[in-house]
Design a protein around this nucleic acid. Structure first.
Lengths: 332, 332
DNA sequence: GTTATTTACGAAACCGTTTTCGTAAAATGG
DNA sequence: CCATTTTACGAAAACGGTTTCGTAAATAAC
């Protein structure tokens, strides 16, 4: 249907191969033939069929972005960064949502192996129990934020351990001694590191760990509210909360509002988040803000660096971009 | 590299065409041959090369989603809906961000014409001045939210006029008489309709329009803060604000905070938004919540309906999914 | 038992591009 | 002026499927 090389060749009395080479600026084609071809091609608005090129060249110029969800501000900002780099490099971005479901993640990743994309950027699902579905992926793989450390690949992370540590340090400096940690659903590494940083900081500052509950949240909002209410609704309650992901932090806000606990008077809150409107919350939220945009850019850049090589092996390295603690009213 | 039909054919002593037909469950292949092929194919984990199929069949099973940005909660929720439908239908979603830039939108749409995708879902950029770059698009096109009415295509919209009207009605019922309308950047239809609903409601309720400024916001945050401060920082200021998009509503919050105006005592605010955390804002925000997820689903469904037909013409119709006004503390 | 039809498969063309290889003509070398 | 290299192009074979068409064998029809 569209205008093809064949049509150009016929109209210009040239061979198909000549036109193809001219368009790719081959040295075997004379300057004026190239000029003739270019001129005519732009005139009739020629655009190469991507499938033919991909079929022959084994390059699709597509990349896949596999994330748990897109309505989390961290992921949407990361996608923003990824898309910018991709567009500049002439790549196309395909997006897949796992909804934190390991099975679905597996199905998606498997489906990607047939050449539809040249590489994958992924932040793994929290509900990924099955741990072998990356083994037979032959595509270059770059993990960002939620990484798999047992797989040789590039990993773009933030300083989760340190951030957990700093959150505690910050709360202690505000007089807190009963610091709760809200663990997110699933067994994600990033949560584990944040928790370990939290625990180490408690230890280093001589805080009694017995008063510092680690609350395991689920993937269900109302269930979490029930759990949080249970933790907060008694006199021995914590004097501060660290939300390990955006969602549970928001749920902690809801629980405090419902229990008429005043933030930051009755309880202080700091949350891992990327919300640009954290400052507009009631009260404005002290956040550990992850460099989502930069992590997206870094992940995409790492992938394209690999794709530009002959050998499609992602270098096995870890790139850390630090988060920053932004103090607001919730810990004042 | 991967396992191909040819390999299956050789290993099973069949012709390539036989294998192809068997895999597509053709009636010309006997039941036991089909069984043999299926079994072997699954055993060696065969997956068809999408480029070969697309090249021959002129179907890519890809669709493009072109949106201004992904960090706006409306668009991220819409993408969520789109992706769900697409995944169910076996389609792949390519995402493109225009950053409200008409030129970039044009470049993206042009680049999509060569068959990389089978159809396009688009919400047009606010900065689209050039109005002819959809004319030569031969792909099925479905607009959602920000539509182009002069182009025959399916349009998924919400009741913008009515919502603008209802926002005013709600504020009037709360005693407001000096109602400001914050227009968003660009000449979007949706903003115009919301504004027209706003104006009609003022008229119908006998409100003096002179006290109801229409504030033209820009695409620049600090510039908007300057403008908003100018509007709010005097005694004759409005007693209420309608934010026509999420961003300017949030900026109005910031401006009020900076000017120490108490919401809702000094000024009431209602905003077009999809924020799930609107209830956590300071104070919780009365929103006109657009059915983002449903609009995404509807847009994708309409597109796939077209793609399943022989004739690839999108029906020229408009589907309206109503928004709902959710009352919260900002207008109490 | 002969002819007509159906069944089950294979050969080959095709989708649009890239790439290898072959080869006249032109340019260069001695 | 003849031998060799370079230049500029064309023919054809891929890439991995799908689809049309042809055709033996099996079955049905009469």
């Amino acid at each position: 249907m569209g205008v093809t090389i064949k049509k150009i060749a016929e109209d210009l009395n040239l061979a198909v191969s000549t036109v193809s080479k001219a368009l790719r600026d081959s040295h075997e084609i004379s300057a004026d033939t190239k000029a003739r071809v270019f001129e005519y091609a732009t005139k009739i608005n020629y655009s190469p069929n991507p499938y033919a090129s991909s079929l022959k060249g084994r390059r699709s110029r597509n990349i896949a972005v596999v994330v748990p969800e897109v309505s989390d501000s961290f992921f949407s900002e990361a996608i923003n960064g990824i898309e910018e780099v991709a567009q500049r490099e002439g790549y196309h971005v395909m997006i897949y949502l796992t909804h934190e479901d390991g099975k679905q993640e597996q199905a998606i990743v498997n489906d990607l192996g047939n050449g539809r994309v040249d590489g994958i950027l992924i932040s793994v699902a929290a509900g990924a129990t099955d741990h072998d579905h990356f083994d037979d992926v032959k595509l270059p793989l770059v993990f960002f934020d939620r990484v798999r450390e047992d797989i040789p690949s590039t990993r773009i992370v933030t300083n989760d351990y340190e951030s957990g540590y700093n959150a505690v340090k910050h709360l202690i400096s505000r007089g807190c001694r009963r610091i709760a940690f809200l663990s997110a659903f699933g067994g994600l590494n990033i949560i584990r590191y944040r928790r370990e940083g939290y625990l180490q900081a408690l230890k280093d500052h001589g805080i009694d760990v017995k008063n510092c509950p680690i609350v395991s949240c689920t993937n269900n909002e109302s269930e979490n509210l029930r759990i949080l209410t249970q933790v907060l609704d008694h006199t021995e309650r914590p004097d501060s909360i660290i939300g390990s992901v955006e969602k549970v932090t928001m749920q902690a806000y809801v629980a405090c509002h419902e229990l008429n606990l005043s933030i930051p008077v009755d309880i202080k809150v700091v949350g891992f988040s990327h919300l640009q409107i954290a400052s507009l919350l009631n009260p404005s939220l002290t956040t550990i803000t992850q460099p989502a945009y930069e992590m997206g850019r870094a992940a995409a850049t790492a992938l394209f660096k690999t794709l530009s090589k002959k050998k499609l092996d992602v270098v096995n390295e870890q790139i850390e971009i630090p988060s920053v603690l932004i103090e607001r009213a919730s810990t004042r």
